[in-house]
Amino acid sequence: MTPRVKRALHLIPAAAALVAAMAAAPTTAQAAASPYERGPDPTEQTITAERGPFQVATATVPANSASGFNRGTIYYPTDTSQGTFGAVAIIPGFIEPESTMSWYGPRLASQGFVVFTLEPFSVLNFPDDRANQLLAALDYLTGSSSVRSRVDASRLAVMGHSMGGGGTLRAAEMRPSLQAAIPLAPWHLHGDWRNVRVPTMIQAADNDFIAGVGNHAQPFYQNLTNAPEKAYLLFENYGHMSWISANTPIAKYSIAWLKRYVDDDTRYSKFLCPAPGAPSSTFQEYRHTCPD
């Protein structure tokens, strides 16, 4: 046997081991299906925790800081090692101050979002006024706020309660570049949302006597015929004001929706699809287009 043949035979085991290692190693796509994934792999415990994996700081935005909205508070992750974050603006409902939405700030920001909770110009503002304020707040966040370098301007979302929920739907209709919308017990006199082209999760209460689901949330969902994805969560034994104080199921599904559509993070699909069984102790009804 020639020396060249002997050397070739010695290389065979090493080559086989290399091939096996390459087959076993995760690809980049497997390691991170989305470049916007932030934080560790989620579990039921992490998504329902009062605080997520990110430390949070706050910045107060006083009145007259910019045009188009009144004032508010920004909650943001202090971590700068993972790049920029998606952002969400949140506005309360009729006769509600910003403080009713304040619990969403640290809860969502600690999961990897920049969150801007707003005080409306007037607690009497109607939904379309609130829509304009939500969009102006997002423009401020990405354009001139103290945290603008932390925000990815291409990954933005809106949320709101009651008339703020109606404003959320209108904002999504006005700005189709948004990545997600979450109307909470939405109220609006307009019911045709066929022009909304933003992934939208409507959350509703079975005991809502202010924005009754038969006239608001349910037909709103049905009319979202052009939304690329949509969901309808009818919570069991909830009332119209269930969204103004800390609530684990509300937080869980809001986080999952934002993660899935603002961050394109399919690791959170398991919390949305298949839809949880209903009726149950949590949901009277749950509908979802479930693309995954």
Rank of each mutant, 00 (worst) to 15 (best):
R170E: 13
G239A: 11
P279Y: 10
L9D: 04
L138P: 00
V198Q: 10
Q222S: 15
L118K: 02
I12L: 15
M1V: 10
G72Y: 10
Q45E: 15
F113A: 02
S177Y: 06
S149V: 00
E229N: 12
R267K: 10
L234T: 04
R287V: 14
L118T: 02
T28D: 08
D129G: 05
G68I: 06
Y36W: 12
P3C: 04
I74M: 08
P176D: 03
P219T: 09
A109M: 04
T28G: 02
A49E: 09
P92G: 08
L224V: 07
I202S: 05
R194T: 13
P40L: 05
T142C: 00
L138Q: 05
P249G: 14
H216K: 09
R197C: 15
L169H: 03
H190V: 14
A217F: 08
V88R: 01
I202H: 07
L169I: 13
A227K: 05
L135V: 03
A278D: 12
F235I: 13
P186I: 12
W187V: 08
N237I: 04
A66W: 01
S122R: 04
P35W: 09
V114M: 03
P183L: 06
M1N: 11
T282H: 06
L135P: 00
W103Q: 08
V196C: 14
M163W: 07
A25E: 11
G166H: 10
N70I: 05
E229P: 02
F85Y: 15
P3L: 11
L118Q: 06
N125K: 02
D192W: 14
P3N: 15
P291C: 12
H240A: 13
S254H: 07
G164K: 03
A49N: 10
T43Q: 08
T58M: 13
R170D: 10
S149W: 01
P77F: 06
V61T: 09
G83F: 01
R194H: 13
A24Q: 11
S149D: 05
Q45L: 10
G164F: 03
A251N: 09
T27R: 08
Y286K: 09
R175L: 11
I95P: 00
L156N: 01
T282D: 05
I47K: 06
M163C: 06
P276E: 09
N223Y: 07
P276H: 09
P77H: 09
T266F: 06
T78W: 03
S34D: 14
N125L: 09
A217D: 10
A137H: 01
P219L: 07
D206V: 11
E50A: 14
P77C: 08
T225H: 05
P26R: 04
Q179W: 02
P219M: 15
N207Q: 15
F69K: 01
A275N: 08
I74A: 06
I255E: 13
S34I: 09
S281H: 11
A32G: 00
F69M: 02
S149G: 00
I250T: 12
F271S: 13
M1L: 05
T117L: 07
D79L: 01
N207L: 15
A227T: 13
G83M: 00
D206L: 13
A16W: 10
C290E: 10
P13H: 09
V158G: 03
A63C: 01
N237M: 03
T73L: 14
T117E: 04
A15D: 04
P13E: 12
V56P: 00
I210P: 00
E173I: 04
P42T: 14
